[in-house]
């Protein structure tokens, strides 16, 4: 019994991958893909842009993991709360857009610092499972508190960006997605530089490696925790603006955060370039399966396919395409 199970455990991923591909082929996906290549190209381009917008949200996640070794299951809720604050300023107080964004910015800074002080700092040195559970608790707290304080009515954030798509040959590009993708790449490049080249970035990586050793080396661990959470909050504000413009602002916005996990697992949890690649792959898979497989299985592939891909990745390379492989000591 046990050798069989061990064998299954080693080859499980490949069996699953084969089954997944067979499933898609059997549903007629691949044949249609070749026959209907124009549609496929359109979907692919849209998918890549959407994927890069997922990256924009995943940045905050990777940032926190890279600099504090904590896992933030509430990233989607960060995005939601940022968007709700901005939308609330616009709707209720009638503030101009730039002022609302500024208020949102200030709110996220205070929010990140409060969070670090009262939730994360007491948990320094605790088991990783405890931190995961705490952020799950935080996610549900925000999902309840956001609408309660800022109103549950759905609204939108109207950015001064044209709605009509840019047509360029075969391609239809949505301006907001283009902008989101550009901001996302810009930010990721910036963070990549920050972590590699600056003193603070190196200190943050040291903190992630070991809280205790960093403290012994004279790094102010608490300050870097605060910096990481505040930055994650501010990045969430950007994600909230882009996604809030696209799909509207209510609690459903938090569900975008669920796409973060496939993105970061595919790319590697502590890799900046991995976030871009992971985002693109997830966006592509999502768009193509939604376009070609959905009609055969009755919908929902958009949410299903990235997770299957992620499970397969977890079994082949849990640390992702670009992630660092951890070696465990007692």
């Amino acid at each position: 019994m046990q050798p069989i199970l061990k064998f299954l455990s080693a080859k499980f991923a490949w069996i699953l991958l084969a089954a997944f591909i067979a499933f898609i082929v059997a549903e007629g996906g691949v044949g249609v893909l070749i026959k209907d290549w124009r549609f496929a190209v359109e979907l692919a381009v849209d998918g890549v842009l959407t994927g890069l917008m997922y990256s924009l949200i995943a940045v905050g996640f990777v940032l926190i993991y890279k600099s504090t070794d904590a896992i933030n299951f509430a990233q989607g809720e960060f995005v939601m709360i940022a968007a709700i604050v901005v939308a609330g300023c616009l709707d209720w107080f009638g503030l101009p857009l730039w002022l609302s964004i500024l208020v949102g910015f200030g709110f996220m800074v205070v929010f990140g610092m409060t969070l670090e002080r009262f939730v994360l700092r007491p948990m320094i040195g605790m088991n990783i499972v405890a931190i995961i559970m705490a952020t799950i608790g935080l996610a549900f707290f925000l999902r309840g508190a956001g609408p309660l304080i800022f109103g549950a009515a759905p609204s939108t954030i109207n950015l001064p960006i044209p709605d009509s798509p840019i047509v360029w040959g075969l391609l239809y590009l949505t301006p907001i997605k283009l902008l989101g993708a550009a901001v996302s790449i810009l930010f990721l490049a910036g963070f990549g530089w920050f972590f590699l080249k600056t003193r603070k970035g190196v200190a943050m990586r040291a903190v992630a490696d070991s809280h205790q050793v960093s403290m012994a080396m004279g790094i102010n661990v608490e300050r870097y925790f605060a910096v990481a959470w505040v930055t994650a909050g501010v990045v969430a504000l950007l994600g909230g603006l882009a996604w809030g413009n696209m799909i509207g602002v209510d609690t459903q916005l938090a569900l975008v955060g669920l796409k973060v996990f496939p993105v970061v697992i595919l790319g590697g949890l502590d890799s900046i370039i991995g976030v871009i690649v992971g985002g693109i792959v997830v966006g592509l898979v999502e768009a193509l399966t939604a376009g070609f497989v959905d009609p055969y299985v009755g919908g929902g592939m958009k949410d299903f396919a990235p997770y299957v891909l992620m499970v397969i990745m977890l079994m082949i390379r849990p640390y992702g395409i670009f992630g660092r492989r951890l070696i465990e000591r007692i």
């Binding site: 559970m133 705490a134 799950i136 608790g137 935080l138 996610a139 549900f140 707290f141 925000l142 999902r143 309840g144 508190a145 609408p147 309660l148 549950a152």
Partner: peptide, 11 residues
């Protein structure tokens, strides 16, 4: 909403 807040907060 209060239910979510209490659950998350208590965790």
């Amino acid at each position: 909403q209060l239910r979510l807040i209490f659950f998350g907060g208590l965790i």
